[in-house]
Write a protein that binds this DNA or RNA. Structure first.
Lengths: 343, 343
DNA sequence: ACCAGCCGTGGGAACCTTCCCACGGGCCAA
DNA sequence: TTGGCCCGTGGGAAGGTTCCCACGGCTGGT
């Protein structure tokens, strides 16, 4: 194509096509009153020269970069990878690029990344705020959309999360339907807010079902497969619960290992319900029945909200997306149809 | 902090601290002969005003953006998420940001993303090239490091990949050690190059072991859990192999499901060896013995090579990183110690 | 005592684009 | 015919930073 290393500018294109740089700029920015003749000449020059518009200069002048930041705990975590994918798909449709950062649940890293983002002059950012760095976040003068359960601490900021209460509700309903009685609970420590929300939801919904939280066994553990295995072993050390509701899939998967290596059968001896919907839950044996969070949709909707915020819309909402039950093998099918209250 | 929405510039800081904009620039860019007095005044002004240097203008003038692109098939795929994580960790150490794109194995998307990257004036890019878009890639005048097995088609470009031959070698050695005879092969269709390399490695290494490829059963399938299940069922429909070597973990996991739902035991009836090292392989039941690719390291080394390329180093190599066997439950331990050739 | 050289500093040019304004020509209505 | 208006166009300024060069003051060597 072009012979030398000379970086081309729109001025070169203007010279090649015999028009002014203003006209070249207009052609390259899409319509806006340019004659067909001029447009063709410019396009031809662009084609033969292999010119690529410099988005840096463009952004500097226009104030828009077409880039947004995504700050999540860990892209290698399947849940967050899925959120990222959802955001990317939505962003790609509007030609915006994603700058992705891992906070590793570390407020200091989060702060550094946010700083880098403001310096890069991204148009906005989607952030899963880390526990303690909360106040500081508001200080970054940049359109922000929050994701995750800690988002609720910022009532003034738009956010997208999954509806934990509703998820717990369908989970407990399903456990009721299984007819195995009150579940033992397995909860994690990853995010304090997430844990609290889960427990709070179980309390309020359990009351309706006639299952007071106080009477349930509740075991804490690290938010990992190993943590779930250990927590489940502690549970089994005292007695064998008929059914276990885990607050996340990783721990549920660990619990499954603990159940099976104790010589117990799942679901015949101990039934199990997870929460999250990670892909690995599909390939465990038996495959894990779980309440899935709409991870990909969370990313997608977060991008949509951010777009609105960037566009200057005044009332960008806080969204709570519903979870969905994925029927698999660790929770037995209901023996009998449940009474359904119509309406 | 600052009261109005006025975007601050180094000129404002210069005025506030009583020095010239050049000096402010020097302070902000790190050392380079500035008096301690000037430095302190500037830093103080920056602190109180909340000024953030505009990286757009900086990059426009300096020609460096501190951003690199990463074009991979799918960030939601655990292998690629891990590669991304490795690259990000290495990049974060040098304060460079990652622009991540998903190609979905689609040459046209790859082309679009690469175009966006050049327009953004990123300093370089790490790309897993898609099958057919190969020739086109070289056209983008931008420092490039390739990852994945198709990288070998570009002998002139630096690249990082896993050593498939070596991985197959330790896999076959392990199968020999298990004493179960010749394995059946399960291969995927995701990347033609990857498939070919796997088969070629099995052929050449099998010859040494006295296992000609022609005599092995070989089943093709889609590179997914479902594909693996289907392929395994086809295998089982004819006869029951004593041991199966799958070219990737997702298919192996599907195969495991097929084996178990046929009422067979793994590893007692059919033993299984995977390839990749995805996290889900750890939580299947039984957990999957597999040859793990060094995914995170691939990302990290790719970034290192790219840094060298960007710095202008002349001979940036093509790297081939070793795979490692992860012992788990689907392949029985050797009954007897193998004869080991010393040295 | 003088000149070379270095150090810290400042001012202007450059980076490449978009935005703003002005200008000429054609059209329509008065 | 003429005045007002819109359309397509061009030129200059702006956007915020780094780079280059020059300049004054100080030091050290002759």
């Amino acid at each position: 194509m072009s012979d030398s290393t000379a970086p081309l500018t729109i001025i070169d294109i203007a010279r090649l096509s015999g028009v002014s740089k203003s006209t070249v700029s207009r052609v390259l920015s899409g319509a806006e009153s340019v004659s067909e003749d001029a447009r063709e000449k410019v396009m031809a020059a662009v084609q033969t020269s292999g010119f690529r518009r410099n988005d840096l200069a463009r952004s500097l002048r226009s104030g828009r970069t077409g880039m947004i930041g995504l700050v999540i705990p860990d892209i290698a975590n399947p849940f967050w990878a899925d959120v990222a994918r959802g955001a990317q798909d939505a962003a790609a449709d509007e030609n915006v690029s994603l700058l992705i950062f891992n906070s590793d649940w570390d407020p200091e890293r989060e702060r550094r990344h946010l700083l880098a983002l403001t310096q890069s002059r991204v148009d906005g950012a989607i952030v899963n705020p880390v526990r303690d760095g909360l106040d500081e976040i508001a200080r970054f003068r940049i359109p922000l959309v929050l994701i995750g359960s800690s988002a609720e601490r910022f009532p003034q900021l738009p956010s997208v999360g999954s509806d934990i209460s509703q998820g717990v509700s369908i989970g407990l309903d399903r456990i009721v339907a299984a007819g195995l009685g009150m579940p033992a609970l397995l909860v994690g420590d990853a995010e304090r807010t997430a844990r609290e929300r889960f427990v709070a939801a179980v309390r309020s919904i359990g009351e309706v079902e006639g299952w007071p939280l106080d009477e349930m066994r509740l075991e804490d553990g690290h938010y990992t497969v190993d943590g779930g295995r250990a927590a489940m072993n502690r549970l089994l050390a005292r007695d064998i619960p008929r059914v276990v509701f885990a607050a996340n899939d990783l721990m549920a998967l660990g619990a499954l290992q603990a159940i099976r290596s104790s010589g117990l059968r799942c679901p015949e001896d101990v039934a199990l319900l997870g929460f999250d919907g990670v892909p690995a839950a599909e390939v465990s044996a038996p495959s894990l029945t779980t309440v899935a969070k709409p991870s990909r949709e969370i990313g997608g909707r977060a991008f949509e909200l951010l777009s609105k915020k960037i566009a200057g819309e005044p009332d960008v909402p806080k969204l709570s997306l519903p979870c969905a039950l994925i029927e698999r093998e660790t929770l037995p099918q209901p023996n009998y149809p449940r009474a359904v209250s119509t309406g």
